[in-house]
Design a protein around this nucleic acid. Structure first.
Lengths: 125, 125
DNA sequence: GGTTATTGATTACAGGTGTAATCTTTACTG
DNA sequence: CAGTAAAGATTACACCTGTAATCAATAACC
């Protein structure tokens, strides 16, 4: 039962993961790039609260919003579900698609090799 | 402008990518696992045709359906858009999530290392 | 050739999403 | 203290999606 956060709502989550708590006005400010009306952003905050993935504390007449779920956990969830839905769980194919299709820079390649080396030294299995 | 295929519709595409052309009845048969009514599957075929990702030739009163897009192209598209939407384009973070979070088997690890080695020998850049 | 069974087309309908506008409450301002 | 402005709550509305049922056309059977 993966967490249900829509595309547009994800942008709001990203803001809150960067910094929190924030008032709705502050969230709106940090979302200038998307050109959403302030009303739209407020709708998203509302929906996110209802979905239980954002919380708030009252501060007078306004709310201070914070994420109620961990970014890492969320990414892991989304990744898992993407793998299942698009690649039917075939992680080799997924990795091949990303490694082949994206022009990986030398930096990124090295990083990935680092990940693997790391993994190998830890997993004795 | 990524290709717009919904979750449920993807299952139909997968069938057609495995084998085509197929009649609607054959598609329904191959989707036993999902327990969808035959009507539902037909709706999906219809929508996919309207979306331009499936085509058909008439064969008497019935249609023979085939995919109108390549699976590889589709996967690349979906992957790109997943990377952007969920990881905001940060491929290192994406790879780290998959490599860390999934228990990669020795086989899968080796495969990935192979991919990288391959990549390295080709990309002289 | 008329009836039937099947296939595709059209219609249905609730819940989610993008995108707001309007309503209501309440903290501040004069 | 009355009025206003700002914040959150409620309502709106069209399009997409999941999930079918019904309608219409036509190939096949008797």
């Amino acid at each position: 039962m993966s967490i249900r956060v829509s595309e547009a709502e994800k942008n709001v989550m990203d803001i809150l993961w960067q910094e929190s708590p924030l008032t709705s006005t502050e969230v709106v400010e940090r979302l200038q790039t998307q050109d959403w009306s302030e009303k739209t952003v407020k709708t998203f905050l509302n929906r996110l609260v209802k979905k239980g993935v954002v919380t708030f504390q009252k501060d007078g007449r306004r709310y201070l919003y914070s994420p109620a779920i961990e970014r890492d956990e969320f990414l892991a969830d989304e990744s898992e579900s993407f793998l299942d839905k698009v690649f039917k769980g075939n992680i080799k194919e997924l990795l091949a698609t990303f490694v082949d299709n994206k022009q990986l820079s030398k930096d990124e390649l090295d990083y990935l090799k680092g990940l693997l080396a790391d993994k190998e030294s830890k997993d004795v299995k």
